[in-house]
Each structure stands twice: as C-alpha cells, then as structure tokens.
C-alpha cells in the first residue's frame, strides 16, 4: 500500500490580501503590488533586509513561504523541505526590465543586480537561504495551476525519502497582477494530499 501524505498548512497572497489556512491575516488597499507587498512585509514583522533587494516575483514567493515556514519551528542549522514551485509568467516581469535596459544603444545599461532575477528559480534560492534549506528545488512553468503534476512530484520526493516535507505551489507575477498559493505537504495533517483537495484550496479565495 502506497504511503499517503497530508497538507498541513497553506497560504494565499492575492487581491491585496494575505491569508493563512483560509483566514485573512493582512489586507490593504494598495493598488500597486510594490506598495502592497512592502506593507505586508512590515505588518508581518518579517525583518529581513535582503527582501528589499529582491525583484517582485521573489518578494511574492518569499513572503508566502515565510508566513508558512515561520510557524514550523524550523531548525536554525538546516531543514529538509523541498521546494516545488510553478507559475505561468516565469520571470518575464523582470525580463522586460532587463530588456528595456539594453534596448537602446544610447541608454545601454544592463545591471547584474537585475539580471540575476531573470530566472524564476532565484526565489527558491532566496527562500533556501532564509530557512536553511539544502533541499531539492524545482521550478515548473504551466499555462495554469496544475495540481496533478505538483502532487505527483511531491509524492515522488517524499516516497523516495529525498525530502521530509515539501512546500509546493504557484507564484505568478505579471506586471501588476499577482497570485501566490503555497501549501506544505508532510506525513501529518488534517487535509488529504490529493488533486481535488489541492484544487479546492487553490480556489478557496
């Protein structure tokens, strides 16, 4: 009989709201993503100055991961929590900014601090640094939220013993539109780890 896993907790960041396990913990009327995420960072007492160097996709992913992982009493040395993230727009929001910086010969000014964020998996690195995760990490691109592939991949890492827990989900940022949904999968938890439940939670807000 195959081992079954559970969803222990989940969070959403969308529509100017941060919620954990379906309960709103922060809401703000900023129309602009940068202002909203900064206000959320302050309200959540995140206290991580590197946050302000991140691009918008990393800020979104980092904060969504942080609200879940800070409740986990993580080890200060290291933790084996795999990260399986996905989205539609990859790092295009930042890619457009890098392209704009090289588009005209007269104003040719590529910046390494910006260029490094033209990869979607950089946010996984940011989360790994903060929470001491030397674990598996993968970034997938899908046309839309794809619960089935996330579920299969998480099961594979947990069953093979490559990860003790898996933080999965969707972090999409495209100009001013943003949508983050992350959930933590492990042995114990109230919610079954299957595609119906994952889709139900994704659509809860």
């Amino acid at each position: 009989m195959l081992q079954e896993f559970h969803i222990k907790s989940y969070c959403h960041i969308k529509s100017q709201t941060v919620s954990v396990n379906g309960q709103t913990i922060f809401n703000d009327d900023s129309e602009d993503f940068s202002a909203f995420i900064k206000n959320a960072y302050k309200f959540l007492k995140t206290d991580y100055p590197k946050f302000f160097k991140m691009d918008n996709l990393s800020k979104l992913a980092f904060l969504a991961a942080d609200v879940l992982l800070k409740n986990e009493n993580l080890n200060e040395e290291e933790n084996n929590i795999a990260l399986i993230f996905s989205n539609k727009a990859s790092s295009l929001d930042t890619d457009r900014k890098h392209q704009a910086a090289i588009e005209n010969d007269a104003e040719y000014f590529p910046s390494p601090a910006l260029f490094v964020y033209t990869l979607p998996n950089i946010c996984l690195g940011e989360i790994s640094i903060k929470h001491r995760l030397h674990s598996e990490n993968s970034f997938f691109i899908f046309d839309r939220f794809n619960a089935e592939h996330l579920q299969l991949y998480a099961n594979s890492l947990l069953r093979s013993g490559k990860a003790e827990k898996v933080l999965c989900g969707w972090v999409d940022l495209d100009e001013n539109s943003y949508d983050a949904f992350l959930y933590l999968v492990e042995n114990e938890g109230e919610i079954e780890h299957n595609t119906e439940e994952i889709n139900r939670l994704y659509n809860i807000l």
Binding site: S90, H149, L152, Y153, L157, S160
Partner: peptide
Amino acid sequence: IVLSNACVSGVLVISVAKRF
C-alpha cells in the same frame, strides 16, 4: 511540462522524467 531552473535545468529534467 516546462522546467526552468537556471543552469541545472538540463540535468534536473532527467530526474523529473524519472520521477514522473
């Protein structure tokens, strides 16, 4: 399924295939 994981993508994608 598109994998975009910087410069390890071409190795990691073999793992991904194996896992699916």
